[in-house]
């Protein structure tokens, strides 16, 4: 079932960030939320995640959904290693082998037991993506997930995420049209 966003309105200190926003998140598809910087894309997904409440409007079809997220800032456990970060959110039935294999696929195989605080920016981003992928969810929400990845890893990671999440409900925020072109799917513009 699709998720319907009806007249979502949100303002901070009298500044309207979202005003009567309407849109549909298609089920089992890649959904791209696009728009200029500061237009309210992150606010919209914060509302979808339940981290913020809209001043007005409603979201239909999102009740009790299990979410997996790549936040704009990585929000990793910096003093723990990569495996612990994934284990934190992994479902009970996830095997250690699965975690290690996923980290290897993301190019983090040599840093499995390294403290995250010692990771580079790109490594942290890939780890944040890995954390979202290991958590089996109904909806995957990704806020500019490929930002900060260098050229070589950028395309490789996009293709890997596409392969892993094909057929699932995914919401991706991005500025880059090229990412939408690779993934395909539904596109929602915030104006």
């Amino acid at each position: 079932m699709s998720i319907i966003l009806k007249d979502i309105t949100k303002s901070f200190d009298d500044l309207d960030v979202l005003k009567n926003f309407n849109g549909t998140i298609e089920d089992n598809e890649f959904n791209f939320i696009m728009g200029e910087s500061g237009i309210g894309k992150t606010t919209l997904i914060n509302i979808l995640m339940g981290l913020e409440k809209p001043d007005f409007g409603e979201i239909v079809g999102m009740d009790d959904m299990n979410l997996s997220v790549v936040f704009q800032e990585n929000r990793l456990l910096e003093d723990f290693d990569a495996i612990t970060n994934l284990k934190l959110v992994a479902n009970k039935d996830t095997k250690d082998k699965e975690i290690v294999s996923l980290l290897r696929d993301l190019g983090l195989g040599d840093s499995l037991n390294k403290k995250v605080s010692q990771f580079s920016g790109g490594m942290k981003r890939r780890l944040a993506i890995g954390r979202a992928l290991i958590h089996k969810a109904d909806i995957y929400i990704m806020d500019e997930p490929f930002k900060g990845l260098d050229k070589n890893l950028y395309l490789k990671t996009i293709k890997y995420v596409k392969e892993k999440l094909e057929g699932k409900t995914v919401i991706i925020i991005t500025h880059r049209e090229e990412e939408y072109e690779i993934f395909g799917g539904n596109i929602i513009y915030i104006k």
Binding site: M49, G50, L67, V69, E73, R75, L77, L88, V89, H135
Partner: peptide, 20 residues
Amino acid sequence: KLIKMAQVFRVNNYKKVKFI
């Protein structure tokens, strides 16, 4: 932000207390 992250991922209380 870590608490909110754990909340979104539905991390259980034991892990939340131990790791955060």
